[in-house]
């Protein structure tokens, strides 16, 4: 969808006066939002009990990676015309580029091992490996934080959302949340009781 919108606006000359920057920003933000949604799947399942979202996790993660690839290609090809000297200079000179490249590097093995086949082959280690997604998300938010001009409110919001999703996974908190849910789920069964006396 975001890609369709991007192509539509591109075809209609509607990508601002600085289209390359606009494409960079849009693909980057889409990747970050999709990554946050990927991370939200497990908590939504566990905390809210919406099991239907679980099958969405892998496609969401892969779409996030896809937009990250577009983002990287925009930067290296469209923006810098594969000028390796300038790109190397950018990585060395600008922390945000380095952090962004690191986020991409972390996500590459996760995208590769996202198939059922790899899940089977890695067994328990697959779960451990895929916890790296939180590292990638943290790097992504840091990248965004470093790239905005002074007004860091939006990157901080993304950071807070991702941190919140991470916190929900801590076993003690998970247990608390699960208990609340169990209580909620059992309560309706008792509800009709008070009406008996009337």
């Amino acid at each position: 969808m975001p890609l369709a919108l991007l192509l539509w606006d591109g075809a209609h000359n509607d990508l601002t006066a600085n289209p390359i920057q606009e494409i960079t920003q849009r693909t980057g933000k889409t990747a970050l939002v999709l990554l946050a949604l990927t991370l939200a799947v497990t908590p939504v399942n566990r905390v809210l009990g919406v099991r239907q979202v679980v099958p969405l996790r892998r496609p969401l993660g892969l779409y996030a990676f896809f937009y990250l690839c577009l983002h990287l290609l925009t930067f290296t090809v469209l923006d810098y015309w594969l000028d390796l000297e300038l790109i190397a200079q950018a990585i060395a000179e600008k922390p945000y580029v380095l952090v962004g490249v690191a986020a991409f590097t972390v996500l590459v093995p996760l995208a590769i091992t996202s198939t059922k086949n790899w899940m089977r082959r890695l067994g328990r280690r697959w779960r451990v490996l895929h916890r790296l997604v939180y590292v990638a998300a943290a790097l992504g938010v840091t990248h965004y934080y470093l790239v905005v001009k002074a007004d860091v409110r939006e990157p901080l919001l993304y950071g807070a959302i991702i941190a919140g999703l991470l916190v929900l996974r801590f076993p003690p908190l998970r247990r608390v949340v699960a208990r609340i849910r169990v209580r909620r789920l059992t309560r309706p069964a008792r509800l009709p009781q008070p009406s008996r006396g009337s």
């Binding site: 600085n18 390359i20 920057q21 923006d79 300038l86 200079q89 950018a90 600008k94 922390p95 945000y96 470093l146 790239v147 001009k149």
Partner: peptide
């Protein structure tokens, strides 16, 4: 500059 290239411009 920490963010933008000052060696080049568009």
């Amino acid at each position: 500059h920490p963010r933008w290239s000052q060696a080049t411009e568009r």
